[in-house]
Design a protein around this nucleic acid. Structure first.
Lengths: 240, 240
DNA sequence: GCCATGGGTTATCGTCGTTAAGTTAACAAC
DNA sequence: GTTGTTAACTTAACGACGATAACCCATGGC
């Protein structure tokens, strides 16, 4: 209890600080002794998982460093050993989610060598379902400004995921001989269309949406048909 | 400088509080005397506009009540006379933006009694342009969870705007005799598609988007064609 | 035994949203 | 022209926040 700081000011806060008994430390560690090298990585992973869960449950801004730490039974400052600040924790979660999404897309293209339109159709469906099944990760990753740590990354996971998708669209453009189609623009529009549904459904859960499967199937169909039709002249719609 | 509070505790903060010289009060008021009834509404509007500007420039979470107040030359607590909390300020801005958007849509339908498809086409274009031209209001309104003040409102502006759009889609469904089309689902999908583009472009300004007008025109076309095609069987795409 | 170091702690800072209590200027009635 | 009343605003303070600085101490190689 010795005041070893130089200023000798009275303590003023620290009354309810870290004193939320609702959050108990996770005692699944097993050992009670201090650990050394290598264990740090484990702790780092624990922090990431706790943060992911709390971000998911309560959102980024409302999740505090202190509560992440408390849920692991450590003090808030211990977190700064593994991450420079709160934003860096979010950045790492974002990057991991982006990677998962990209792998999803790449696997699909490699595993199903069938009609490119069918592959694109399935990829779009997959994307939307992925988003809806990982609401919090999706929200963290796509529905808020990218933290600089991710944005300045040369291997920007968003760009990578986009490129995977672009390949699928290009396959369709070539297979269907959609002359005059800008595959890049089409991919951006398709992505925007997928993102919009996921984003709105996640952000407006109380909206009276039509039944989920109808909504998703119809949306995929709308987008894929749109890609086919919008690509080469508007011979069906009739809008000069 | 008399300490009129009962507790006689030492002041501890209040050092840099409200002491940011960069933010000068807006001295356009003219009179220097205190004002009475009716002037309160003016101050309320001032707060809303300052908040809108600051939310726009720096985002909701980073904008503090103290800075909103400082930009008007009043103390932070004065704000609580007009709004119960920070969220309520955001809620009012949201509601106002929703109204503007809805009016946009209604005007368009009333003023141009031409081909329903053309009207829908223009409305979608309008929506996207509106979003891109009001990036911060759009972000505040659509890209974050609705505050309860707006959500619990019976005249939920989002629902109203949606209904306006639904009417346009229904016009198209009837004019083109798209049997088997669920106008409600189509509207939701169309809205999701529009929202997705606006949302992504606003949230990822550094992404290598194709040229803006190409992107928007192509997207509108993709969506409108998608509505036409997705509505009644997939006779063009060829995906069983 | 010594000590560098990794994995923690406590104390503290400045800021935040928000509340409580007090101040002051403009009006109303007497 | 004093006396309320009240709208509009202030100062002081609270508890929580992100972050930093300074310290503690068990482990493990020497």
């Amino acid at each position: 209890m010795i005041n070893h700081a130089g200023t000798m000011a009275e303590p003023k806060a620290s009354k309810l600080d870290e004193a939320t008994p609702a959050l108990e430390p996770d005692l699944t560690a097993g050992t009670c002794t201090r650990k050394r090298k290598g264990e740090g990585c484990q702790r780092r992973q624990e922090i990431l998982e706790a943060a992911k869960r709390l971000f998911a449950e309560e959102g980024y801004e409302k999740t505090t460093i202190r509560r992440i730490a408390a849920s692991l039974g450590i003090s808030s400052t211990a977190l700064y050993v593994y991450f420079p600040d709160k934003n860096a924790v979010l950045a790492e979660i974002c990057a991991s989610t982006f990677r998962e999404l990209r792998q999803h897309c790449a696997d699909l293209r490699g595993a199903i060598p069938s009609d490119p339109l069918r592959v694109l159709h399935d990829a779009v469906t997959h994307y939307i379902q992925f988003g809806l099944e990982h609401p919090h990760e999706y929200h963290l990753t796509f529905n808020m400004p990218l933290p600089p740590e991710v944005k300045d990354n040369a291997e920007h996971p968003g760009d990578c995921a986009f490129q995977s998708f672009q390949a699928l669209v290009q396959d369709v453009v070539e297979a269907r001989q959609l002359h005059g189609a800008d595959g890049n623009a089409l991919t951006q529009q398709l992505w925007a269309g997928m993102h919009g549904l996921v984003s709105l459904v996640l952000l407006r859960p109380d909206f009276p949406w039509v039944e989920r499967s109808v909504l998703v199937k119809g949306h995929v169909q709308l987008l894929v048909e749109g890609v086919l039709r919008a690509a080469d002249g508007r011979q069906c719609g009739g809008l000069g």
